[in-house]
């Protein structure tokens, strides 16, 4: 098996497949990370992905425009984020429960809208792979990273963007301050509510992108429950990545490349019981988490609603 794996062709196939599979996790987990950095735990990621997957698909199906599909998918996610922000920031509801409520809303709503509008599985011509000039000709790297569709590139570009925003801009400083000590941010004239709204809505938009990628970038069709639990994995990847863009990238890639590897192992007919194969990504991710030395430092105010203390 090792020999087969070391053949360049196999490795490229597995890594390229891993990059494709990592994309939805990357979108969703980066978005969730930004929300959590501001102190809001949003468990509605999976439902948001489903609803955006549907709206993006439907608009693309009806209009034939992928760009319009992406726009609507992102706006749908933003709207879901707005709902979460109203409930958890303004109304200060318990965040875990509100997030699960949001998830169930997205799940039910996407089922319902699909039934009412399309009613049967349909397909669209989704995003086509777009080779990046020059870079795609690089050995190995070119085939692994630079022959995908535009949404895949976007997801990977958003990693350094998220890093720069969080750690190199005044906005990022405000976000981290609000997530660590909202009282302190408030006394410095930072609007805790404003920052949390912004972050949760951006997080929703990125979940929306994740769903959009599923329906018009990867599957090119819409089916009920299209995420199959990916949103929950994305939330876990935020913890795995220790609220850091590079960590989230590492977690998404590890999980997805191992998944691609187990698919490859099955396809090559290598004698491993399939149950073990499908468990591999989960087991390895947990093992990696257990062996990572640094202690997890979650934002101190995560999942705590903020209210100016009364005298």
């Amino acid at each position: 098996m090792i020999n087969e794996l070391l053949k360049e062709g196999a490795l490229i196939l597995i890594l390229a497949s891993g990059v494709r599979l990592a994309t939805p996790y990357l979108f969703a987990a980066l978005g969730e990370m930004i929300g959590q950095r501001s102190g809001v735990l949003n468990l509605g990621v999976d439902g948001t992905m489903m609803l955006s997957a549907f709206t993006a698909f439907y608009v693309t199906f009806a209009s034939g425009s992928l760009a319009l599909g992406v726009l609507v998918g992102v706006l749908t996610g933003g709207l879901m984020g707005l709902i979460m922000a109203v409930v958890s920031v303004t109304m200060r509801a318990e965040q875990g429960i509100s997030g699960i409520g949001l998830h169930l809303f997205g799940l039910g709503m996407s089922n319902l809208l699909f039934r009412l509008s399309l009613g049967a599985i349909s397909t669209v011509e989704g995003f086509r792979p777009l080779s990046v000039p020059i870079l795609s000709d690089l050995p190995v790297i070119g085939a692994v990273f630079f022959r995908h569709n535009v949404l895949v590139y976007l997801a990977f570009v958003l990693v350094p963007v998220a890093w720069v925003v969080l750690f190199r801009t005044p906005l990022g400083l405000k976000i981290r301050a609000v997530g660590e000590n909202p009282q302190a941010a408030d006394t410095l004239g930072v609007s805790v509510t404003g920052i949390r709204y912004l972050c949760v809505i951006i997080g929703g938009m990125m979940s929306g992108l994740a769903g959009t990628y599923l329906s018009i970038g990867l599957n090119n069709m819409y089916v009920d429950n299209i995420t199959n639990g990916m949103g929950w994995i994305a939330v876990a990847l935020v913890y795995f990545g220790r609220w850091h863009p590079w960590g989230v990238l590492a977690g998404s890639l590890l999980f997805s490349v191992v998944n691609a590897l187990q698919i490859w192992v099955q396809v090559r007919g290598i004698a491993i019981p399939y149950e073990f194969a499908v468990m591999m990504p989960y087991v390895l991710t947990i093992v990696a988490l257990a062996f990572a030395v640094r202690r997890a430092q979650q934002p101190a105010a995560l999942s705590k609603p903020y209210e100016r203390a009364e005298a």
């Binding site: 497949s17 599979l21 939805p24 599923l214 990867l218 599957n219 089916v223 299209i226 998944n259």
Partner: peptide, 13 residues
């Protein structure tokens, strides 16, 4: 229900 996984599996085949 893993349509994305099935798609990726078909591509690998």
């Amino acid at each position: 229900g893993d349509t994305a996984g099935a798609g990726e599996m078909a591509k690998t085949h």
